[in-house]
Design a protein around this nucleic acid. Structure first.
Lengths: 130, 130
DNA sequence: TATAGGGCTTCCAGTCACTGGAAGCTCAAG
DNA sequence: CTTGAGCTTCCAGTGACTGGAAGCCCTATA
């Protein structure tokens, strides 16, 4: 498979796949003409990476997960630990965003949003009381 | 004020303040010795920036908001529009994260997490049915 | 056979918002 | 006069790509 086909089938852009090769996540062979030659196992790995990234795992997590995926003697506890840590990080982000959302929507509600210049949003940002 | 004091009072690291000067968000004067000389208005701006960033506004949004903040003839509708667009972006991110969270926590629940190698998390990532 | 195009290659630069570190100047205290 | 903190600039790195240029490869058509 050339990169175009594997991109199509994995759903990842060719640029991303080349990048993944650069950082050693996949190691496709090469054809005589210099083109990357992907095997089915490479495709599987790329699909794996696409899904893991879609779940928000970092590239380094993905690298570790791929390693575990290929390690027949892994312990599922290792995978679960990584996933749980990531879940905690997601929860942290969600609660940060919720805090932002809360403050911001209050400010938006307080702003009349017309042609007049006075604006509770700017007042709050500037620290002006009131 | 030197950068140390303004950093202390604004809560922003000196590095960040220098960066904000680099990109033109603040324009402190200079003392004879070459040190940045911040006035109270510079401090106000930095506090404003710190709060706006804490609400997740991008630097470019911050630049626009600062402009409106300093523009006496602004219309509050302009500010509100920026804030509303940002709120939408926050909501989008929250729902993305919630989707991730949902999938991930299901996988975690399904994984026994012991010394055995079989793992629903890896199965799902690899696309293996079951 | 010439050529046009699309796909492939590499390499460099840019994104966003900082952050770390090196080399060197300035200033106040002891 | 030295020490050390604080200030300066400049360069490089972060994460995970993404865009673009220059150029090779392959196939189809005139």
């Amino acid at each position: 498979m050339n990169i175009g086909e594997v991109a199509e089938r994995s759903g990842l852009p060719p640029k991303t796949i080349r990048y993944y090769e650069d950082i050693g996540l996949v190691r496709p062979q090469r054809s005589d003409n210099g083109y990357r030659a992907f095997r089915e196992t490479d495709l599987h790995k790329l699909v794996f990476l696409g899904r893991a990234r879609a779940l928000g795992f970092s590239i380094e997590d993905c690298r570790t997960l791929l390693g575990l995926y290929e390690d027949e003697s892994r312990e599922s506890a290792q995978v679960k630990a990584i996933a749980e840590e990531h879940l905690t990080a997601i929860d942290d982000k969600i609660s940060q965003l919720r805090d932002m959302r809360q403050t911001l929507s209050q400010l938006i509600d307080a702003c009349h949003g017309d042609h007049r210049p006075d604006c509770p949003i700017l007042s709050d940002l500037s620290g002006t009381p009131g």
